[in-house]
Computed example of a mutant assay.
Amino acid sequence: MYYHDKRLQYPVQVTEPDPAFARMLQQAIGGVEGEIRVCMQYFFQAWGNRAPTTKYRDMLLNTATEEIGHIEMLATAVALNLEKAPAKLQEEGVKDGIVGAVMGGENPRHKIEGLIHKNLLSGGLAAMPVDSDGVPFNMSHIYASGNVAADMYCNVAAESTGRVLAVRLFNAAHDEGMKKMLHYMIARDTMHQQQWLAVIEELGAEPNNLPIPNSFPQDMEDQQNNYNFYVTSLDGSFPEGRWTQGPTPDGKGEFTVFRNEPLGEEPVLGPARPDSGAQAQQIG
């Protein structure tokens, strides 16, 4: 079960409302880098966590619940940037054919098709579970594999791209209240990146966790192709780096370079079946 406090996790204040920035904030709510994504990801990882101890489940539930508070903060920020917009912004908007059509009651269909102001038309000047283009969040990029190490790496990636987005929003913000809110959210993304990396470290650091899943006997995989970098350029050139020579991070092999060439045969499927709906010429 969960508890709610009507106070926000961190202050959200807007002095100069900006409807355009409200739309940008929607990406942090319902975008692939957004807070709904990490919130749901951590919840489903927690609810499916199996281990001798419940500490990872408990940790994930605490952070998932924290992310609900982040969604609430962002939703409040979107509403404040829309609801308190001064009349002069609306008047300037009327000069634009599309905005004027929506806000002024004019209904030339050809002007408003292709640019639907969902926050106005469907949300009543409030936040919605959509990204900055109005595309609904659909849960298709929630990663909860049941493997705690794999999930932690997914979480590091999620918090990394989320922090990139928060930094971009901070740089785009003009309102000091928005900058203050975002500087808090950037800090929380820093913590969460380190938190998931700490779990990986606690599990035994990378050599003990890799390759994932570490429960599969590695001697059952193709020993000729597990640590070689495939070069796919026609002239055989390749970018040299840590991944082309030396010991692998898991300490179980050496990186080598392999110029990619076909190891299999040309696939020939044969004629089509008579009942497959193919052309007569395809049927043998």
Rank of each mutant, 00 (worst) to 15 (best):
I36W: 11
R37N: 12
V38G: 01
C39E: 05
M40W: 03
F43K: 09
F44C: 11
Q45Y: 09
Q45L: 02
Q45R: 02
W47E: 05
R50E: 05
A51L: 01
A51T: 13
P52G: 05
T54S: 08
K55Q: 06
Y56F: 13
Y56P: 00
Y56V: 14
M59I: 13
M59L: 15
L60W: 14
L60T: 04
L60G: 05
L61M: 14
T63Q: 13
T63D: 13
T65W: 10
E66M: 03
E66L: 15
E67M: 07
E67W: 02
I68P: 02
I68F: 15
G69W: 01
G69Q: 05
G69H: 02
H70E: 12
I71Q: 12
I71C: 09
E72D: 13
E72R: 15
M73E: 11
L74G: 11
V78P: 05
V78E: 07
A79H: 15
A79S: 15
L80Y: 13
L80C: 04
L80S: 08
L82V: 14
L82M: 12
E83W: 12
K84G: 00
A85E: 11
P86F: 02
A87F: 10
A87N: 07
A87P: 00
L89Y: 00
Q90T: 12
E91M: 11
E91S: 08
E91F: 05
E92F: 01
G93M: 11
V94W: 08
V94P: 00
K95C: 01
K95Y: 10
D96W: 09
I98K: 13
I98Y: 14
A101S: 08
A101K: 01
M103K: 07
M103H: 02
G104F: 04
E106W: 03
E106C: 00
E106H: 12
N107C: 13
P108M: 04
P108L: 07
R109V: 15
H110S: 04
E113S: 11
E113K: 06
L115G: 04
I116T: 01
K118R: 09
N119R: 00
N119T: 07
S122F: 13
G124R: 06
L125V: 00
L125N: 15
A126K: 15
M128D: 02
P129C: 03
P129K: 09
D131G: 01
D133S: 03
D133A: 10
G134T: 10
G134W: 08
G134V: 08
N138S: 12
S140A: 07
S140I: 09
